[in-house]
Design a protein around this nucleic acid. Structure first.
Lengths: 192, 192
DNA sequence: GTCTTTTCTTAATCCTGATTAACTTTTCTT
DNA sequence: AAGAAAAGTTAATCAGGATTAAGAAAAGAC
């Protein structure tokens, strides 16, 4: 159950068996059924979630009343609303399972206690966050430098398995355009 | 010279005088004249920069040959090309001073050595990265949920001093549109 | 296995912002 | 102070995607 998490941590730092056992004893794995929610607007965001199996999406409802997906969380990713994590503010986001999903929830007091007990975890989270931030930097570049169609072409060329896994309207939302437009550009390619 | 940096670190963790002195002794402050470069395409990105005075911009040249600004670095911000930091890949970005600027460069071996010597720095960088990532998450939401004009209006309402500080074409680039469009929406507001 | 809900497609029209180009103003340089 | 370069403006035309609406197909529910 915690294998994926421990494996992930050990890609960055070394853990003794005792330390691994301590981590497992303090955390709880959660199973979320497809379309179940970990967060929804008005709730307090109190944990960071490691996806050990399945797929999450983070989205908000925009001014026009449409869902706007801003992040996906695949196996091996950390996902939460960092903007309100540990603040006194309720979240404005939805965090929902796209498939039956298993996550390991780290609420902040537990995370801080584990970091105290196992200082390598400080390094682990620092490195994970640096990678996540690097990815976000690249994504902003990607959004600004390419058209919607180019971003879709790139995505389907580089992540064909992912495209299979999510409904098209979610992919369209994540890439920042409408499902109708996605249909249009898909039709364009397969016709000749 | 290092006051801004030490103050920043002390917002997150406590440092003894000895530790502060150690940090200062290992790092070097750099002065970059307006329009000077810290990085340009083909160079290796070997350091993370803390802006203690002035303003940096990070940009790339897109397919059409135009500058696309993806990040600004004001006083108290960390900025670098995390995508290639410490990789064997040369960077593709420009990191340039918008004004005469002073930065404190942390190359990675020095950073790692200081973290070894002063474990609180692990926590410091983790927290700084978490804040930076939270900001990036919000920015992606901002880009996707608002039109170009709305983003400009928001920006000028919330960061009026910043708007004064950068040429309009840089602001337009950062917000993802053309200088012509910015002229247009500015004219619109002041006319009635 | 039918009925319902969800997802995907197609097409017409509309709108936001890009492009191009010419011009004005401001800022550097010497 | 004069000239050159950089930055900002205006306007006409164009294009990439949104919107709206209706229908088709696929997936779930019972």
């Amino acid at each position: 159950m915690y294998t994926a998490l421990l494996q992930h941590i050990r890609k960055y730092v070394t853990l003794t068996e005792d330390e691994a056992a301590l981590i497992c004893s303090k955390l709880k794995a959660l199973e979320i059924k497809k379309k179940g929610f970990l967060l929804s607007p008005g709730k307090m965001c109190r944990a960071n979630y490691f996806v050990s199996k399945g797929l999450l999406r983070l989205y908000i409802i925009n001014q026009k009343g449409h869902e706007q997906i801003t992040h996906f969380g695949l196996e091996g990713w950390w996902l939460t609303d960092y903007g309100t994590l540990d603040s006194q503010q309720p979240t404005r986001v939805y965090l929902q399972a796209v498939e039956d999903t298993e996550v390991i929830a780290w609420d902040t007091p537990t995370q801080e206690a584990l970091i105290q007990a196992i200082p390598q975890l400080d390094t682990y989270f620092r490195k994970v966050l640096q990678r996540a931030y690097a990815a976000a930097q690249r994504r902003i570049e990607f959004i600004y430098c390419y058209t919607d169609e180019e971003r879709y072409r790139y995505f389907s060329a580089y992540f064909p398995e992912f495209i299979q896994r999510v409904p098209q309207y979610m992919l369209a939302s994540y890439l920042g355009f409408t499902p109708q437009f996605l249909s249009k550009i898909r039709a364009k390619k397969t016709s000749p």
